[in-house]
Design a protein around this nucleic acid. Sequence first.
DNA 1: ACTGCATATGCAACTAGTTGCACTGCACCG
DNA 2: CGGTGCAGTGCAACTAGTTGCATATGCAGT
Lengths: 181, 181
Amino acid sequence: MALEHAILVSLDERSGSGYELAQRFEKSIGFFWAATHQQIYRTLKRMVELGWVSCHEVAQDGRPDKKVYEVAEAGRGELARWLASPGEPETIRHDLSVKIRGASLGDAAALTGEIARHRDLHAERLDVYLAIEKKDFPDPSALSGRRLHQYLVLRGGIRAERALVEWCDEVLAAMREDDRR
Amino acid sequence: MALEHAILVSLDERSGSGYELAQRFEKSIGFFWAATHQQIYRTLKRMVELGWVSCHEVAQDGRPDKKVYEVAEAGRGELARWLASPGEPETIRHDLSVKIRGASLGDAAALTGEIARHRDLHAERLDVYLAIEKKDFPDPSALSGRRLHQYLVLRGGIRAERALVEWCDEVLAAMREDDRR
DNA sequence: ACTGCATATGCAACTAGTTGCACTGCACCG
DNA sequence: CGGTGCAGTGCAACTAGTTGCATATGCAGT
């Protein structure tokens, strides 16, 4: 399980509360590891028990108290161990592919609509990633260390989304062509 | 959940036992929807209760009896309903990205080894897909209907694996370059 | 005879992830 | 003064997926 490890990486970049982590998972970490606030709170609790992170409450004015977590020694050790350990490639679960494979059993028009919708969603995500690339990493050749690693992960997102958009376009073109005959 | 639907699509292509389905998930359906035999047996049982599939036992000689499942009317209806209903894009969980993002916290050499290993795994999968493409779909422009849909899903796999291989290569090149400085 | 392998099905216990709700604090708007 | 909305934490119940084991038939090789 990598949720613990994703949280460790994120907390190492900057300590924060469960709420803040949930927001990071919404916008940046979540691009490659999705998690809800429920999962994050539950996992943080477990990680405190394991001694991987430490926690102290912080009183705030103008808003409720929060619990700030930071990576402990044991957490850093666990992260190093995990980074060096081999992992399986992701198990793929792509329901759009299931739908396409079953296309002949349903309404073709509804399905092409669905594919077009996914195409647009992926195109939107791609635009977001490209905007981040342009804004935050204008000169990739000058990057090193942590910044370089962030950039490389973003590059993975760009490549994946681009591949999906192009694939959706290929599927739509082929299905329309098939329809015409 | 799409496991039911993936099973329906597969059973519609050809009726079969849980064991046979598990094998299909290992080699073809599993390229875009992973499932273990446990999941499949459990889900088939539930689908019989729901009336989506029917089941009859078949005695065999030379090997144990089996239960052959086939899609029922209600299953076909459910599948058509699902095909037309909008779905969320996949929630991404890519632990290689988490590892790269945390690269500076562990052993760089071990991590590049891990990335190279994934690169090779994806290159292998890509070769498998390309071989299938060449063998089973030598003339894509002549395809239509079900065969076309199978081909298009395969194309998605090819695009995805190619993107991953290229990304791994980019990451490895950039990390080696960064190392040298 | 013994071992290993493929076929064939399944339970039990576990881990992981989702969904729906509940609670507090405070600010800002009309 | 009541509604909306963000910040902040969390429980309970559920669904989905994994892992380890159990069991049975029968073939092929040593």
